[in-house]
């Protein structure tokens, strides 16, 4: 079966570059599944997990937003942060979740609220990716 090269790059360096058979991710407009030979496309991603399936292997990556660029034989994911389950700092994520929840309960200014909400989403996403992997 044909494959596509998936590369995940962040400002702090490349995270992954490997061949997979299918990529599924959650874009702003909904779930997307990408197989080899897809037409070139660009889509923004939500804070979510990207699932990668290949020959007898599967991988999950937690991304915080960013976007996805698709070419027939290559998928590039550009995100401000992206982590494999093994790279996730689980304690930090748990702490971030608690902090964000506390802030949300305090209900201060509007901008803080938004920021806390995003932080909470990122933390939940990380925890989710981490826990589903083990």
């Amino acid at each position: 079966m044909s494959t596509l090269t998936v590369s995940v790059v962040t400002p702090d360096g490349p995270v992954l570059e490997e061949a997979f058979e299918m990529v599924s991710c959650k874009a702003e407009s909904g779930e997307l599944g990408i197989l080899p030979g897809h037409i070139p496309m660009v889509a923004p991603l939500t804070i979510s997990a990207i699932r990668l399936k290949g020959e007898g292997k599967s991988d999950r990556i937690a991304v915080s937003g960013g976007f996805l660029e698709v070419r027939p034989d290559k998928v590039t994911i550009l995100a401000q942060s992206a982590e494999k389950p093994t790279d996730i700092d689980i304690d930090r994520a748990r702490m971030a979740k608690e902090r964000a929840e506390r802030r949300l309960q305090d209900k201060q200014a509007d901008i803080d609220f938004k920021r806390a909400e995003l932080a909470l989403k990122r933390a939940i996403n990380r925890l989710d990716v981490y826990e589903n992997n083990f």
Partner: peptide, 20 residues
């Protein structure tokens, strides 16, 4: 060399992409 399909559309992608 690369004419993309935009999902959902160009404006919304620019909205995310340009600040980044």
């Amino acid at each position: 060399t690369s004419s993309y399909e935009y999902e959902p559309n160009q404006e919304e992608i620019l909205e995310v992409l340009l600040p980044q």
